[in-house]
Amino acid sequence: MSETNSKVEVRDVDVFYGDKQALNSVSIDIPKNSVTAFIGPSGCGKSTFLRCLNRMNDTIEGARVEGSIKIDGEEINDKHLDPVILRARVGMVFQKPNPFPKSIYDNVAYGPRIHGLAQSSDELDDIVEQSLRKAGLWEEVSDRLSHPGTSLSGGQQQRLVIARAIAVNPEVILMDEPCSALDPIATARIEGLIDELRENYCIVIVTHSMQQAARVSQQTAFFHLGDLVEHGPTETIFTNPREQKTQDYIMGRFG
């Protein structure tokens, strides 16, 4: 992988929750304009690692992250860096759709308002519409933007949350099992959306579904017990893994 192509460079990252070590010396490069999938059994540290990339581990009491994480060459695992500004650059979508107790419009406008991205209300309307369009939700909600976000279906809520993340125009979007609470049809829509978003964003997705990883990602990383066992192009990982453990997991022998 060439130096210029990677968006995120991670070197020797350890994560501790209190005395417990959750990640051991993880190093990986995550490329631009592509989807990288993190796979592995429950408790292997893939979500923990994802949360390192936008410093969400700061909100957990007793969590400690050591090592170097650079986005576009800039060190982000640094006490002096403001995580609030970082999180505007690195958006996140969670396992369960979590629309705020506000209208659909206000949910999407939340980030732009906080960060002062719109100079006028017309501009804000525009950002909201563009974000909803990119998330493939505009057609369904354009006539009821003032309805509460919680009134949408599960799949729509998850797309609303993606629109909310896109609205602040981030460079990286982290997705933590974004389809685990959704039915197959909603999942297919989200996966299609992820594929479209790849053109403009660097996307990292944590998933339990091997098929999903194979369908949506170009790069795959396999975690096990806090170690990054193997990573590389998705095709290689799924057809010709280097490590026996990776093969066993992909074949469904454990996990």
């Binding site: 969400m56 909100t59 999180r87 996140m92 705020f100 939340y110 906080i114 909310r164 993340a165």
Partner: peptide, 11 residues
């Protein structure tokens, strides 16, 4: 998750 969602937006 609501709080996390908001923090993740950079609030």
């Amino acid at each position: 998750t609501l709080r996390d969602g908001s923090y993740a937006m950079g609030a």
